[in-house]
Structures are given as C-alpha cells and as structure tokens.
Design a protein around this nucleic acid. Structure first.
Lengths: 151, 151
DNA sequence: TTAATTGCAAATCGTTTGCTGAAAG
DNA sequence: CTTTCAGCAAACGATTTGCAATTAA
C-alpha cells in the first residue's frame, strides 16, 4: 500500500495542482492528528509549523484531502464538520455519547450487507452511507444514575 | 390514538405556553404538508394563511413541533434541516438519490436489532440513531447509463 | 396585570468566495 | 510567462437572538 503523502502528491499531479509549503504543512499536521477534529482545530495545529496559514487554506486543503481519499468527513448535524483519517481504514460507523460526546467507531458486516439488500430492493445502487447511533456511554450512564436525559 | 392537534395543545399546556393564531396557522400548515420540507418552505405555505408570519416564528414553532413529538428533523449535512411528520409514524431511515435527491423511507427491524446489539457490546444505551444510505435511484441509474458519478 | 409572543433586524457560526499580490512550473 | 496559490476580509446560508411592541390568559 502506497504511503499517504505519495497518494496526495499523485492526486495533485493528476489534477494539475501544485504542492506548496502550506499544503505540505497542513497535510503533515493532518497525518499526525488522531481521532476526529475540526478544520479550525487542524488550523491551530498547522500554525505551529507555519503561523501564517489561513483558515481558508485549511478548508481548501481539507477538501483536497477528502477528494484524494486520505480524509473522511463526518457531517455532524451540530457544530463543525469533523475530519478523520480514511486512507487504509475500513469503513466504519459511529456511536456517539449524547452527554460527553465521546465517539466510538463500529463496524458491522451484517448491517452493511443488509443495507445493500434494502437499497437493492428499491432498485438503488449504493455509493456510501452514514450511520450514527446516539445514546449514553457506560461512564455517563453510571454518572447520571437513573436520571432522565434532556440535554 | 389522540389526534395531533390535541397532542400539540397538551404539550403547550404542560409547558405553560399559549396557543396563538400564528402557531395555529403553522401547525395547520405543517399537518397538511407531506414528505420532507424546510423551515423556509413551511413558512412560505403558512403565509397563505397569514402573510405576516415571520420566519423566526416558524423556526420557533417547528422546535415545539419536534419537542411535542409531531415532527421529526432530518439534519441533512447539506442545505437546510428538513422536517417530516413523526406522530404515529414508525421510525424509519432514508435512502437518498445523489443525482435527483429523491428520498425513500426504509424500515428494517433486523438493522434496528443489530444496532442495539452493537451499542450494547460497547456498554452504550441507545436513544436514537440516524442512518442515511446514498446512491442512485433506478431512474437516474438508467438515465446516466454507465457514466461515472461525480456531482 | 403579567408572562408569553411576535416580527424585525442584527448577530452567530461554519464555510465559501472575490480579490490582489506572490509563487510554482 | 501563465496558472495556480495564499491570505484576508467580505459574502453566504441557515438558524438564533435581542428588542420593543403586542397579545393571551
């Protein structure tokens, strides 16, 4: 499997785009970041490499990262879009705690298979999907005791 | 099963809120609307009953409709939030065509069950979930022939 | 009378875009 | 040279909010 930087460079080449110090810094920062993070967070981190980097450039580069297949975007209904690594990662869905926001990645071939079947039954060809399960994580469940949830 | 207007009135009462002509017009319009629609669309329709209704009031009333259980909100990653009837409707997920935007509602007890299992395996208690399958509907599939999709 | 409600306009928030100078090939 | 880029600030779209003037109970 090619390494991510190579994938990105190839993507740029294919599109007739250039590598620049800013893009390099952002990609570098992206590759070093773990979990889920927003464009703004990434910008903050990238500025440690180059304080002059603009938020707009980060947005533009994130778009390239997504298109190149290195990054995945989680359109959170609430708040900013979160990004994550997607190169070399199997597709996964998310389990989110409504209290503390912790996110757990889950994979289930059975659900994936059923999704294909359901789509097929309607004559659809699936491209992608998003599934997010919301609830309470074990820690919050314990911490809140039996009280109701209405955050 | 109580009728929706009654449900809404009870909800208002319980919260110490008042019924007003504007709320009545918006609820009425909501109940007559089918499928998925945005706050703005609903506002446009409600103005046929009362042209002075403000967009802000529609947003505020939609929030009440959701809280009362009459409406469900689809946090579309793209564009405005779409609303639909949820009172007396079984939970369902969505199948969306990336080309023409048509939305099909799907229900599958098997997936619902599997979701509970997956969440339980992580110690989570599920409150709700959202699942959206994206792809091409039969019509677009045919219309586009074998061409690639990169809209 | 008294809290709830309205419409408006201004404010937010995340994200995109127009612009002008700078830089990559 | 000729695009492509960068950074900035202004523009955007959806939604929320402050406010002063009504209105419901």
């Amino acid at each position: 499997m090619k390494q991510p930087r190579e994938v990105f460079l190839e993507y740029l080449r294919k599109r007739g785009l250039n590598m620049t110090p800013q893009r390099a810094a952002i990609v570098e920062t992206f590759l070093e970041s773990e979990g889920h993070f927003s464009s703004e967070e990434l910008c903050g981190r990238a500025r440690k490499l180059d304080p002059a980097i603009g938020q707009a450039t980060v947005y533009r580069t994130l778009k390239l990262l997504v298109e190149s297949g290195l990054a995945g975007a989680l359109l959170a209904g609430e708040g900013p879009t979160l990004y994550e690594h997607s190169y070399g990662h199997a597709h996964h869905d998310h389990l989110v705690c409504l209290e503390c926001g912790v996110k757990v990645e889950i994979v289930d071939p059975e659900i994936e298979k059923r999704q294909e079947e359901l789509a097929g039954a309607q004559g659809f060809t699936l491209t992608r999907h998003s599934m997010v399960l919301y609830g309470l994580c074990p820690a919050c469940l314990k911490r809140m005791g039996g009280r109701t949830l209405d955050a």
